[in-house]
Write a protein that binds this DNA or RNA. Structure first.
Length: 888
DNA sequence: CCGTAGCATGGGG
DNA sequence: GCCCCATGCTACG
């Protein structure tokens, strides 16, 4: 998109945003821009335009198509190109230009500022300015409140359009005057001033107007003065607070509405977007112009606001950013007109079970009916599917101000399957003024922000966002937080901070939820490559199905993936790849590296502590050395250097790894504290943080044969076997010394073995495991027994019942591990309460090499890990002791 | 004890 | 210093 081409002549590319052709030497002229210039098109587009097929050719899928009341022809009314192709009828509806001329009913729209043309529906809308528009069940009554702001064409779909417009008239300036006594009474509103430039402009009623506007360079259209003079001033209610009174959703002064109506109705026929507002009066500013007023700001953001005026007070993050699709989604009826009002990214609280959606104050006051009592009133809202919901629109007194909320949104939120981070949009549907609530999933929102983000000063590509998995991948951990869900075979995408993000730009918390959250997507190979035995680990070696496993009592550690090997002398070593030069360095086998390890940190080999040093390994050696997964990882790492998305992905792992290694709290700046989980930080791998979204985790049935369950079951069997074995030993010892009382059956139980249990046990410290089930009767220790019943609930805290997405086994396993820990603790709790004494279990003290030649894992991951038996074992330590992170 | 309603708190802009 | 608002806190049913 040539979003940078402000002036048509400044770019050599066809002005048609969907055409990348170069203009010819003598570009052909297209429609008139608001600057007064004519769009310069390539020959092809120009021809299409000349033939009147431009919209048919390029805007077919855009919103805004209407039918000529006379001939029935479909006419696009939603873009600047089509601005002159139709005439608005007083009674609503439109006429194609041909019929318009034929009927001679409509005069030229010449006086309409181009921007107004976007609001072809204004006349209709104005007729609806009365309270009728809101679908309230009660209250509102005659309460005067401004109508929703003007509509504008969805700009997100054509951001370039806006960006190309050098300046936009601030039509809203001075318009917001209509007020409702109640609103005026809002103290906070009165105080509010000049929050930012756009606001200043908007507050214009008062006067920022012309002056500011001109300063801003709105030279193309000079409606503002007229607007202010014709509309605003005259109509201004004598409100002193007016000046600061922001809450006007309606740019058009109520008083002027009637006037506008009449005029608009008639004038609706203006066919030509003449920059010069010769008849300014009628147009009272379209308040709506989505085009708006805050010209500069808006352009900067590349998006038009739903309405110019109201926005005045609205922070950019609430500006609606509907796309054509959004609009179409909302309105199945092509004849209805949608006026985007505002949108809001759902916070954890909003999406939580409390069912309260905090509304931006300004938006609530601008677009919702005025309420004077905290109880507010019921508001009927229709969702994009046409389903109606009734919310209680109310407020709470808060610091001399108000905090507006929509109560009872839970059903709706759930129905739309929204989560924190998703965006809910509010619009008005005309005619009827029905309030419509749409939504945009986080992934979509992210994508739509890419353009802006790409311009962020940090220069860091935000591509990763585009790769965010479906929002469903955002896991809700608890009512206040979310974590990323891991998915097999996908890369890690780490949303970057978007300081200038339109959405959530102000909300630290939201940012955290949506941007700081680390979405952990890694394959088994990757995960295993990162998981390391904790330092000073003491592993219990168990033999399972011919393989020896080590179990660690400490928390699992995430570290830089390395390759374990044995050198010629038989010494166990590991190879680590430098982050910078990608050379492989030989290191002692027992060192644990942070994920971002570089040659400079190679204190074990001073000669190779610099990237300039040569690599010991030859390509062949490396090839032989690298296991598949590491090869893949290696490739990925290199690719990462070239692909921002991969960079993001790796950084996600890095973050996770570093966090694990360095310990949360030690490395993360306080600013990264996450509110989704107050005591935890991004990357935290604790049981809480690592859980899948509530309810997301699968609840595996006993009969489930998925890899996870099979693994768990297998693991359980091995544990049982081991337990049995140790038990026997124990018994032998006990027999020699004293009798060991057996445990009550209730503790152990003979119920069918639930997968979960195995998961839990799998991570258990052998000591504990043994102590847990001290039944002397080893027969009881068959693999089918378990103290736990039920299904496998990999989700400790299921709040939602969603299926784990396919291919997310790694995630499931991760949860499984955590779950195991959790179960273990529960088990411990039970055991301790039952007065069991721990029975020591023989432990093997693995060498520093951690028996690398064996498969070390507390869980047999082979089922899902094709490299299970590769040389470098899949080390999957699980912390079983003092789960520091499990409790959050 | 739990869920909720309503208010309070505090970070960030 | 003010305002907004996400979330915490807690009295209450």
């Amino acid at each position: 998109m040539t979003s940078t081409s402000v002036a048509t002549s400044s770019s050599r590319i066809c002005f048609n945003s969907v055409c990348n052709d170069l203009k010819s030497e003598r570009p052909r002229k297209g429609w008139q821009l608001r600057t007064g210039e004519l769009a310069e098109l390539c020959d092809r587009c120009a021809s299409i335009y000349d033939e009147g097929r431009f919209c048919d050719a390029f805007h077919l899928n855009a919103s805004g198509w209407r039918t000529c009341e006379s001939c029935g022809k479909r006419v696009h009314c939603g873009c600047i190109v089509s601005a002159y192709a139709f005439a608005l009828l007083d009674a609503g509806g439109i006429l194609c230009i041909a019929c318009s001329r034929k009927n001679a009913v409509l005069g030229p729209n010449s006086s309409w500022p181009p921007s107004l043309l976007f609001n072809s529906s204004l006349p209709e809308r104005f007729k609806d300015c009365s309270a009728k528009g809101w679908s309230q069940l009660t209250g509102s009554g005659p309460a005067p409140w401004r109508q929703a702001p003007g509509l504008f064409n969805s700009s997100t779909s054509q951001p370039e359009l806006h960006s190309r417009v050098p300046y936009e008239v601030d039509l809203s300036t001075g318009i917001d005057r209509l007020n409702v006594s109640e609103r005026l009474s809002i103290p906070s509103l009165e105080k509010k001033k000049n929050e930012d430039f756009p606001e200043r402009l908007m507050n214009g009623p008062l006067k920022p107007s012309a002056h500011d506007i001109h300063e801003n360079g709105n030279t193309g259209i000079n409606c503002e003065e007229q607007h202010t003079s014709c509309l605003t001033k005259p109509q201004l209610p004598s409100l002193k607070e007016d000046s600061s009174n922001p809450p006007f959703g309606l740019a058009v002064p109520y008083t002027s509405i009637d006037e506008a109506n009449g005029q608009m109705g008639v004038s609706g026929t203006h066919l030509r977007p003449n920059p010069q507002p010769s008849l300014a009066k009628q147009f009272h500013s379209n308040p709506h112009n989505g085009l708006d007023s805050s010209g500069e700001t808006q352009m900067r953001n590349g998006r038009p606001r739903a309405d110019g005026r109201g926005r005045n007070q609205l922070f950019p993050r609430y500006w609606p950013r509907f796309t054509d699709q959004d609009l179409q989604q909302i309105s199945a009826d092509s004849n209805s007109i949608i006026t985007p009002l505002f949108e809001k990214m759902l916070s954890a609280s909003d999406a939580g079970r409390i069912g309260r959606l905090v509304l931006p104050k300004k938006c609530a006051e601008a677009y919702f009916p005025p309420i004077s009592q905290p109880e507010g009133l019921p508001l009927k809202v229709q969702d994009s599917k046409g389903k109606e919901w009734i919310f209680q629109f109310r407020f709470w007194p808060n610091n001399n101000s108000r905090m507006y909320v929509l109560e009872g949104v839970t059903p709706c939120i759930q129905n739309m399957q929204l989560q924190a981070g998703d965006v809910v949009t509010f619009s008005r549907l005309e005619p009827g003024g029905k309030l419509v609530m749409g939504f945009r999933k986080a992934s979509a929102a992210s994508a739509s922000e890419q353009e802006n983000e790409a311009k962020n000063s940090n220069g860091v590509s935000t591509h990763g966002d585009a790769e965010l998995a479906d929002p469903s991948s955002w896991s809700k951990v608890d009512k206040s937080g979310y974590i990323a869900k891991e998915a097999l075979g996908t890369k890690v995408a780490v949303p970057r901070k978007r300081k200038n993000s339109v959405l959530g730009s102000k909300s630290k918390r939201l940012r955290i939820d949506n941007e700081d959250m680390i979405e952990l997507k890694l394959t088994w190979e990757e995960a295993q490559g990162l998981l390391r035995p904790p330092p000073n680990h003491v592993a219990n070696v168990v033999s399972i199905e011919g393989f020896e496993f080590e179990e660690y009592e400490d928390a699992p550690v995430l570290g830089k993936p390395t390759i374990f090997a044995t050198d010629k002398s038989g010494e166990k070593i590991q190879w680590a790849q430098c982050e910078d030069c990608f050379k492989w360095r030989r290191l002692p086998s027992d060192v644990l590296l942070p994920s971002k390890w570089t040659c400079s940190s190679n204190s074990w080999d001073p000669e190779r502590s610099s990237c300039s040093a040569t690599q010991e390994l030859t390509a062949e050696e490396l090839e032989n050395l690298l296991p598949h997964c590491n090869l893949a990882a290696s490739k990925k790492m290199k690719a990462a250097k070239q692909e921002s998305e991969n960079v993001d992905a790796l950084e996600g792992l890095d973050t996770l790894a570093n966090l694990a290694i360095l310990g949360e709290g030690d490395v993360l700046p306080a600013s990264q504290a996450t509110t989704k989980h107050p005591r935890h930080r991004p990357g935290c791998s604790c049981i809480v943080c690592i859980q899948p979204p509530s309810g997301k985790g699968p609840k595996h049935k006993q009969t489930c044969t998925c890899n996870v369950c099979q693994t768990v079951k297998r693991r359980f069997r091995t544990l049982m076997l081991r337990r049995e074995k140790k038990q026997s030993q124990k018994e032998a010892d006990a027999t020699r010394k004293k009798q060991q009382p057996s445990l009550p059956d209730k503790v152990v139980g003979d119920e069918p073995l639930p997968c979960t249990t195995s998961a839990g046990n799998s991570s258990l410290n052998p000591e504990k495991v043994v102590s847990e089930n001290l039944d002397d009767d080893t027969n009881r220790l068959k693999s089918s027994s378990s103290p736990f019943k039920g299904q496998i609930d990999l989700n400790i805290q299921p709040e939602r019942e969603e299926e784990l997405s396919p291919g997310s086994d790694s995630g499931g396993t991760m949860r499984l591990l955590q779950d195991a820990t959790d179960k273990y603790h529960r088990q411990q709790s039970i055991l301790s309460s039952s007065g069991n004494s721990n029975i020591e279990v023989t432990q093997t003290q693995p060498g520093s090499g951690t028996e690398l030649g064996k498969i070390n894992s507390s869980i047999d991951l082979r089922a899902s890990h094709r490299d299970a038996d590769m040389d470098h074992p899949a080390i999957f330590p699980i912390k079983t002791f003092a789960p520091t992170s499990a409790t959050g």
